[in-house]
């Protein structure tokens, strides 16, 4: 941000005295470049600031990706293997032994299409909940929008998801699924899932700074969330009268919507619309919660 070259004076200020130093011959801006004020109860998201620092966001994502893929030779392989192994376990135990209904699809690809976005969501929320505590050395030493830490964790997991999705599309091809126009909706649902992960990540990250046992509780809650979502079973197993309550869970609309896109099934528009509303509301709330907790991060972390 450059100081304006034009000399500007207030009504009662004379011209600046010439000075030996080069910077001081520039006129200072009339309004402060940075205003430092006590925290206010109501805090708004400063979009201009996010824009100004956006390069740092890319650097944070790039750092994590680069370091991970450098550290572990299997770095990229794990990203693919984790959901594949999980899918294998569920296929053997739930698909073959229990015989869970899977919307008339082969159970293996049915469960993989659910586990892949779930692994993304689960890992994204877990790693962003740790991002502020893990980034304490940055928070206490340098200023940048704190939101970037949890958001970057989600972005890193999104990159993993994209790599692992290659297997999904290979499977689709292998089983001979015809792509339909609905596939175009898939990226939109991924975006919605990402926003939902950001919302949950922001909230749990802010809570984790204050209460350190959030990190212990969170995996349990996520496990519960997984089984109340149609990840390893189809939502058709849920009785009709509970269906509306069940759809309160935004993951129902997202995961079933993704399956409908991939396998050309019937889209359940009301539950998708509902998941969009819930995601939006959660995002607004958690951004607010994060922002009002943000002031104390450097003091408490």
């Amino acid at each position: 941000m450059l100081v304006s070259e034009k000399l500007e004076y207030g009504p009662d200020e004379g011209p600046a005295l010439p000075s030996s130093s080069s910077h001081s011959t520039h006129a200072l801006p009339r309004v402060p470049v940075i205003r430092i004020r006590p925290a206010r109860a109501w805090a708004l998201l400063d979009v201009g600031e996010l824009q100004e620092y956006h390069e740092l966001f890319y650097f944070l994502v790039w750092r994590d990706l680069k370091a991970r893929y450098k550290q572990a030779a299997l770095g990229a392989a794990w990203v693919v293997l984790q959901p594949v192994l999980m899918a294998l376990i569920f296929t053997v135990f739930l698909g073959m032994l229990v015989g869970v209904p899977s919307s008339g699809l082969p159970y293996s690809i049915f469960v993989y299409a659910g586990l892949l976005p779930w692994a993304f969501f689960n890992n994204a929320v877990l790693s962003s909940s740790q991002s502020l505590v893990g980034g304490a050395h940055l928070i206490t030493k340098v200023y940048f929008p704190r939101l970037f830490l949890p958001a970057a964790s989600v972005a890193v997991r999104l990159a993993d998801f994209c790599v692992a999705a290659v297997i999904l599309f290979a499977l689709l091809f292998y089983y001979g699924f015809e792509p339909s126009w609905k596939l175009l909706l898939f990226p939109a649902l991924v975006a919605e899932l990402t926003l939902l992960a950001v919302a949950c990540g922001l909230w749990s990250a802010a809570l984790n700074v204050r209460y350190r046992d959030v990190g212990t509780l969170l995996p349990v809650l996520l496990q519960l969330w997984m089984f109340t979502s149609p990840i390893v079973y189809s939502s058709s197993v849920v009785p009709e009268k509970w269906r509306s309550v069940y759809s309160l869970n935004p993951l129902v609309g997202i995961i079933e919507g993704m399956r409908a896109c991939l396998f050309n099934l019937k889209l359940d528009w009301p539950s998708i619309a509902f998941s969009v509303i819930v995601t939006g509301a959660l995002l607004v709330y958690s951004t607010y919660a994060f922002h009002s907790a943000e002031e104390s991060f450097a003091d408490v972390v």
């Binding site: 200072l28 402060p32 470049v33 940075i34 430092i36 006590p38 340098v142 002031e295």
Partner: peptide
Amino acid sequence: KILSRITRPTAGYADLYGTV
């Protein structure tokens, strides 16, 4: 730390007329 915006003041203010 307050001037570099790492932490916020409880009261009072600071105005900086340049990049930091």
